[in-house]
């Protein structure tokens, strides 16, 4: 007996599979948006920033779709045990992805502003932050998809590291602000807001990672 085997009721099975597909699609688009925003910021390029801003709408739509389909499953099939936990976890993940995509949109907006400003601010500090935040979110989503509790368990510490890097970045910026002459004050603000957005994306990744243990639950095969 395999608890991953199909449900006897095929309509129920199909609805659960459709919900999981929506979740994966939403995670994919959110990660894409973040990737676009990263390129836009680091390469000082407006186009990808605009994509991250525009595609946030798609994530919002998927969030609403996931909610509607989760509610329909609850009403029609009364899921229990692992199925119930999967539906609940998916709703919470959807909320976190929606917010992470909002942060990607913020990064896109700030990236656009940076790209349009004449100055060349310090982007080197941001690069590792992007690296960590994107990897954290991608791994959190993958851990849930593959029920990889070991991978999910690594996220907590990685998010602490991201927090530290975030604080260090803020320090770097505030210390170098008075010394720097060729960076406009608005660009410094852009950098600070991007840093904060990345830190928040890490928080959402951490929340998503926690859903893996919840999904797997106590049943031991």
């Amino acid at each position: 007996m395999n608890q991953r085997s199909d449900h006897i009721l095929s309509a129920y099975n199909d609805e659960l599979a459709a919900l999981a597909a929506l979740r994966r699609e939403m995670a994919g688009i959110t990660l894409d948006n973040l990737e676009q925003a990263r390129r836009g910021v680091l390469e000082r390029c407006v186009e990808p920033c605009l994509a991250a801003i525009a595609d946030d709408e798609q994530v919002n739509r998927l969030d609403a779709e996931i909610e509607a389909s989760a509610l329909a499953i609850l009403a029609r099939f009364h899921p229990v045990a692992g199925d119930l936990r999967e539906v609940i976890a998916t709703m919470r993940i959807s909320t976190n992805l929606e917010r992470a995509a909002d942060e990607a949109k913020t990064i896109g907006k700030r990236g656009r502003s940076l790209a349009q400003s004449g100055a060349t601010p310090d982007l080197a500090t941001l690069e590792p932050l992007f690296e960590q935040a994107v990897a954290e979110l991608a791994d959190a989503c993958r851990a849930f998809d593959t029920k990889d509790t070991a991978l999910a368990a690594t996220i907590r510490q990685r998010d602490k590291d991201l927090d530290k890097a975030h604080k260090a970045a803020l320090r770097t910026y505030t210390e170098s602000l008075p010394a720097s002459s060729d960076t406009a004050p608005s660009s410094w603000l852009d950098l600070l807001l991007i840093t904060r957005a990345l830190e928040r994306i890490g928080d959402h990744a951490k929340n998503i990672a926690e859903e893996t243990a919840f999904l797997v639950g106590p049943a031991q095969s």
């Binding site: 085997s5 006897i8 229990v80 045990a81 199925d83 936990r85 106590p218």
Partner: peptide, 19 residues
């Protein structure tokens, strides 16, 4: 039992994945 059963047999039966 219906949200977090601890035995896989229970899980399979209550979710309708039996057999």
């Amino acid at each position: 039992l219906f949200s977090s059963p601890s035995k896989p047999e229970t899980e399979a039966y209550i979710t309708g994945r039996f057999g």
